[in-house]
Structure formats: structure tokens, C-alpha cells
Design a protein around this nucleic acid. Structure first.
Lengths: 350, 350
DNA sequence: GTGAAAGCGCTAACAA
DNA sequence: TTGTTAGCGCTTTCAC
């Protein structure tokens, strides 16, 4: 018999259905989940009744009891940015296909929020975690703890220097190399790089790609022309002003992200200079809006959506294979895309 | 005594802590939640131990037991779009301040996904719901059901024709009116509108604002120059081709969203025409990238972030006041912002 | 101030 | 095929 509800909530429970149908709640539970135990006849009857009574399974109870929540926690640094927005879209689409729910949290590039969100997600007993590190994150203790707990964790794009975790990244180094290589090939020699923090993998890798190309062509890297910093518009704006504060100007600037390039565009415009005539520009990543600005910035294309899909799928693999799962390291290819900047014409004109 | 775990998970529980400290699990529970029952002395001891043992409260169990999840479900049509991205940012920030977790789901503008997500969220026993309808949504039965369940639900931006729900909107009609009014004042007469579906409130309201202004100035609304449809880039692209397929061309186009304007920009460019010389443009909403495209499109500014904040806060009010809560209808002001299109100069040149 | 007992809604193991 | 019995980990009375 269904016990009387202490709370006034009019949520229908298994007991309610069982009582109406004069069967046990176990039968109802099994029927609703399509368990082969139940005859299709009673199953039909139960399903109909459940629907009619407006029954929604209580996932909290189900998760608590079954020790899995069908839920994956995600931590990203930003959300209102093209790159992450499309990665997230990839994650959501894939989750939807697999009938998983996503708990998305946003660190806003701060280590403190990131940690708090991770704690939250652990408390919510998500089945797995996809994390893209904030630009501040240096303390990696939680991740070790998570590994000890045996909870599947996949790092995406912004990954830590840590063993034993699955990582899904784009080929940052190769992409940066291709971009700089192109700049050199069309004749540029004085190349600046608005680089990312060197404690982040993407900062390091893209910088390395830049160095690779410079070294290959025996070009000197000017210290004043490499500025390390964050990944946002403000950073680009500030850095460019700094570079143009000194006497010697570069011919072209390669930025670590698209937002940084946007900051550059705004600053350059403010200073009354033109791209590519006064200064040329290249960047890593882009935005759907790129083709509307003129000149459209030539960029390194990242597999955004695919990064999202892959992260989810590998996390799911890990959940399913559990103990026997072996961490994988995925590097998805990047591609240099020539648009309106850094064209041969622009370089020749110098 | 802590019962032996059936599952191998090494999640620490209240019992584990209680056992170590030779107290009851109730004491631990209370201490950890700062219940005044417990002496600060034991409370300290317990907290320390819990931290040391790496305890994370099991929110599933807590929610199940306490009948509240400290979680709010959100359903939006899109995520990789400036408008929704910033609304969502507003929601997340506010939730964070109030220690709530957000379960964000994305309908991708389809009614089917929307419904499935709503079911999911109900099953997860979220404490409240914030919904922005998909462009397809016509069946409103679920929402009635949710009201009957007594679950707080706030509609945001895309709201249904339904009584008894809190709604948070921008002043769409007023904003559209201001834009068209401006266009008329600078001398335009042949005005087209790429309008939204008329079964959506934003489609209707913005169209109404357009009509208001046209009527006020006794201008004829040309049927071929009003195209109803969706809110994305593709729609803008298609519609503009349609309009320019006929002999008579408008002087200026007002689009129902920024993405639609982007579609227009791309189509216009493709057709070898220039803005504002060949055709002028205005739109509802914008994107951070707008100032980089030239000319920047003059637009109606929406209070994106604020819409997010408000929705969350009202939902929280509803949760807290429960039965006594009276639905509110918020209309946040919009503002016409003149940029590089629809300037006096452009209009005069005709 | 502390704890024993009951229950949140569900699932899993084992009987019947 | 169906039901009984125990939990999942926590909170909430209500005694002590």
C-alpha cells in the first residue's frame, strides 16, 4: 500500500501506480523500464496507467539506488565565446544521442570557481567529468583525488600536465607552425606573437609552433614582440598597445586566440592604422562572424564541434569500460585557412 | 556502525565519518550543515575530519530526503548565439551567487527536443524551471501540467500565450517601433521587414512595433516586403533573395534578429550590392562582433544579461514563496542604437 | 547537545 | 512472471 505522502508535492510515485493497479511497485518499476521479466500485457497496462497519471520517474531516487546518474558534468572557462559555444554544442548533441544529461558549469577563467563547480559536480554524483581548465588553474590536487575515486575524467583543449587522464586536444603546435610558416613564406620577417600563459598547454603549444617555424627559417624571435597573457579581447587590446609603444614595429601579429585578435583589431583601428597595410594579422581560432569583417582574419581552424563530440564519447567509453579503460590522448588536426589578411599581396607591398 | 558497502565506490559517507569519530551520523549531518544543535567544538572536529577524509555530501540522497535539489532547469533554443549566450551567462552568474546549480538544456529550436528536455528536468526534480520556447513550439499542454504540479516556471524572452506564469521579456514592440521610426525620420519610405513566425511572441511583437511606426506615419506596408520565418542566418539569406527576386526593391530592411541580419549581409554581399548604398539595414539585437563589421549595423539593444538575471531571481522568489507567489510580468526596456547603417547620410543620398 | 527510528522513491537480489 | 526484503545516503521528527 502506498504510504501517505508527508509532503504536499503531487508527484506520482511507483507506489501510487502499483496501488491503483493492485500490483507491487517492483512490477511497475520493471515494466516501466522495459525489463524482460514482465509480460508485455501487464507492461502495456502499467505504461498506459503511468502516462495517464502523469508519472515521471524520480531520477534522484533512481540514481541513488542504482549508483549511476546518467549525467555528465562539464566545466568550461567561458560560454559566450564562439570556440566554447561550439564545443559545448558538440557535447550536448552527443549527450542527447546517448540519452545522457549534461550539467554544464562555467569557471569564468578563475581557479576558485572551477574548484567549487567540481565539488558541486562530485556531490551531484555525475557519472563522469569533462573539464577544460581555466587560465588560472595551477593546483592539480583535485584531479588526482578524482582519479583515486575512479571517476572518469576527460580533459578537453585546456589540459594539465598530469598522467593517467584522457585528453582531447587540437593540434595546436602544428596549427601555429602552419600559420607562421605561411607568414614567412610570403615574405614576412618581423613577426610578433601575442601568446598565451605558459602554464597552460595551449599557450605553450602555440608558442612552440611559432618558435618551430621561426627556427626552421633561422629568424630571430624578438623578445619585445612576444607578449604572454590571457585569452580574451582585453588582453589583445593591451598587448598591442604595449608592442606599439616601443620604437620597432613588427610586420605581422599572430594571436593565440580569436578574441585576442579582436582586441588587436579594435586597438589598431583606434590608433588609426589599417590592416593589412600598416600591420598584418593572423590568429588561432575564429568565429562565424569572421567573414563579415574586412579584411577577414586568416586563421588556424580548430575542430571545435568535434572536440566536444570526442570528449563526450571517450568519457562514455571510460564509464562503460570502467576499470579496464586505458586513458587515450587524442590530437585532432588543425588547418590554416587563408582569408583576407596575410595575403601575398599584402606582404609584397611592403 | 557503518554498513559494508555493496559497491566498490570509495565515496565517503556520513556513516564513515560517524564511525571514525564515535558519534551518530545524525550528529555528523547536522554539524556539516551548520545546524545550531551541535556544539561548535564537536562541529569543528567533525568538519575537520570530513575534509580530511575527502567527504562530498551526496546531493542525490540529500535532495531525495529533503525534497529539494537546489537546482534549476533551463531550456533555451540555442546556445552558440550571442543573445542566448549572454542570457545564459546572466542566469549562471545569478545562480552561482545563490548557490544554485543550473541544468542547462538546448532545444535546438525543435519542439520535440524541448519536450524531452522538460521531461528530463521534471524527472531530475529541479526546484524550478526557466524556459525560452523553441520557434516550433505550439503544444502548451506540458506547461499547464507543470503549473498543476505547483512547480515554479518562468518564461523568458520566448513566452507562450498562457496565463498564470511569470514572464520576463524585453520591450520588443517598443524597440522595433523606435528602429522603424528612426528609418522613417531620416527619410526612408520603402521599408521591408524580415519578420519572425507569428506564433511566437517575439515575432508578433516586433512585427507590431514595425506596423505601429508604419501606421503612425501613414506608410503602406507592402506585402512582398514582409517575410515571416525563423530566427537564424539561413532564414535571412533565403528571405533576402526572395525579396530581391521581385522587381520592386525596398530601401531598407529591418530584421527580427541579428543572425537574420547576418544572413542578409552575406546574401547582399554575394549579390554584389553594398550596404547602405544599395540597400540599408537595421536589426533587432546585436553581437559583440558588430562593431568590427563595416558598416556596423544599427540595432535595437536588448538587455540580454539582465533577462537572465531577472528570470533566475523571479524563479527563486517563486520557489521561496511557493503557494503565495503571484506571477509577475516583466518587460525590460530596449534601446535603439545608431551605428553605421541607417544614418542620415545614407538616406539622403537616395 | 545528541541520537534512534523512520522515510524520501527507487532498484537489485532473491524467493515464491 | 511476480513480489518480498533490503538497502542507496541523507534529513527529519522526536525522545533522551
Amino acid at each position: 500500500m502506498a504510504k501517505k505522502r508527508h509532503h504536499l508535492e503531487l508527484q506520482v510515485t511507483l507506489d501510487d501506480i502499483a496501488e491503483k493497479l493492485k500490483v507491487s511497485k517492483v512490477t511497475v518499476s520493471k515494466a516501466l523500464r522495459g525489463h524482460p521479466d514482465i509480460s508485455s500485457e501487464t507492461a502495456e497496462k502499467i505504461k498506459k496507467k503511468a502516462h495517464q497519471m502523469g508519472y515521471y520517474p524520480n531520477l534522484l531516487a533512481r540514481s541513488l539506488s542504482s549508483q549511476k546518474s546518467n549525467t555528465i558534468g562539464v566545466v568550461v572557462p567561458k560560454i559566450a565565446h564562439h570556440f566554447f559555444a561550439s564545443v559545448i554544442e558538440g557535447i550536448y548533441d552527443t549527450a542527447f544521442e546517448h540519452n545522457y544529461e549534461i550539467i554544464l558549469t562555467v569557471s569564468q577563467e578563475t581557479a576558485e570557481r572551477e574548484l567549487r563547480h567540481i565539488h558541486s559536480l562530485l556531490s551531484m554524483r555525475v557519472d563522469g567529468l569533462i573539464i577544460s581548465l581555466s587560465e588560472e588553474t595551477k593546483d592539480l590536487k583535485v584531479f588526482q583525488a578524482i582519479k583515486r575515486m575512479g571517476l572518469p575524467l576527460t580533459f578537453m583543449d585546456r589540459v594539465p600536465r598530469l598522467n593517467g587522464f584522457t585528453t582531447v586536444e587540437a593540434d595546436d603546435r602544428g596549427g601555429a607552425f602552419a600559420a607562421i610558416q605561411h607568414a614567412i613564406e610570403i615574405g614576412y620577417r618581423r613577426i610578433a606573437h601575442l601568446a598565451g600563459y605558459q602554464h597552460t598547454n595551449i599557450g605553450r603549444e602555440r608558442y612552440q609552433g611559432f618558435l618551430d617555424a621561426m627556427n626552421k627559417h633561422n629568424l630571430a624571435v624578438k623578445k619585445e614582440w612576444v607578449v604572454f597573457g590571457g585569452f580574451d579581447e582585453e588582453q589583445g587590446y593591451r598587448s598591442i598597445k604595449q608592442i606599439f609603444g616601443s620604437a620597432n614595429h613588427p610586420e605581422v601579429i599572430f594571436t593565440v586566440t580569436f578574441p585576442v585578435a579582436v582586441g588587436v583589431l579594435k586597438a589598431v583601428r583606434e590608433m588609426g592604422m589599417r590592416i593589412p597595410d600598416d600591420i598584418d594579422l593572423l590568429c588561432f581560432g575564429h568565429s562565424g562572424m569572421n567573414e563579415l569583417i574586412s579584411p577577414a582574419v586568416s586563421y588556424v581552424e580548430q575542430p571545435n564541434y568535434q572536440l566536444g563530440r570526442m570528449s563526450f564519447e571517450l568519457t562514455l567509453d571510460h564509464i562503460r569500460e570502467k576499470g579496464s579503460y586505458v586513458p587515450k590522448h587524442i590530437k585532432l588536426p588543425t588547418r590554416f585557412v587563408l582569408c583576407g589578411t596575410c595575403t601575398e599581396k599584402a606582404a609584397v607591398r611592403r
